[in-house]
Design a protein around this nucleic acid. Sequence first.
DNA 1: TTAATACATGAACAATTATTCATATATTAA
DNA 2: TTAATATATGAATAATTGTTCATGTATTAA
Lengths: 97, 97
Amino acid sequence: MEMLSEEKSIDLAELFKIFGDSTRVKIINVLLHKELCVNDISELINVSQSAVSHQLRILKQSKLVKYRKDGQNTYYSLADNHIEKIFMMGVEHIDEI
Amino acid sequence: MEMLSEEKSIDLAELFKIFGDSTRVKIINVLLHKELCVNDISELINVSQSAVSHQLRILKQSKLVKYRKDGQNTYYSLADNHIEKIFMMGVEHIDEI
DNA sequence: TTAATACATGAACAATTATTCATATATTAA
DNA sequence: TTAATATATGAATAATTGTTCATGTATTAA
């Protein structure tokens, strides 16, 4: 394993930074099961629609979630199962402390 | 998989937040190989001694690194191999984008 | 005992960021 | 067309955070 480049260190930090907010953690958690629309997420995790929407935009920009529009609804889901792996690694860790 | 509790969501976010800074990423990266003292880390990653020391404190507080003192030196190393796993999951992810 | 080295840490400052509030846009129902 | 619903987003604000600079503490060398 060699030294990480400056750029890669930043990219890696950026990635983890996305997981580093409890609202986004909650969103990712409810999306582990199935795709959900914004209002469902908002109600499930008890965070305002606006706050959820702002965070979904961040998750979308970092390509951690994808979405599809269906009528008035926008359904969000995890982009790939790497996201779940990283997430579960974290869960495992805090469960062992 | 059930719903994460509020507290667990916060703990999980706190954990990822630690990985969410490029200086800490660089520190963790150089510690993957072997234990190192503060000055070595500072020179290897090209970050001031003070900044490294501040970040090591954060890593220490979150129990991601451990340390041992030997004379004037303080040698730091990763607390357990969970840290490496989480880190490498992230590396894998960004390598695949 | 004095100087040098290694590390830690408080204060200050700049930058980033998450939420709320208000409002805009888009789709469907009436 | 009008009202209602679902979502998005800009501005503002408060809070968090990472670095630098200065300096403190501890250990070893001279």
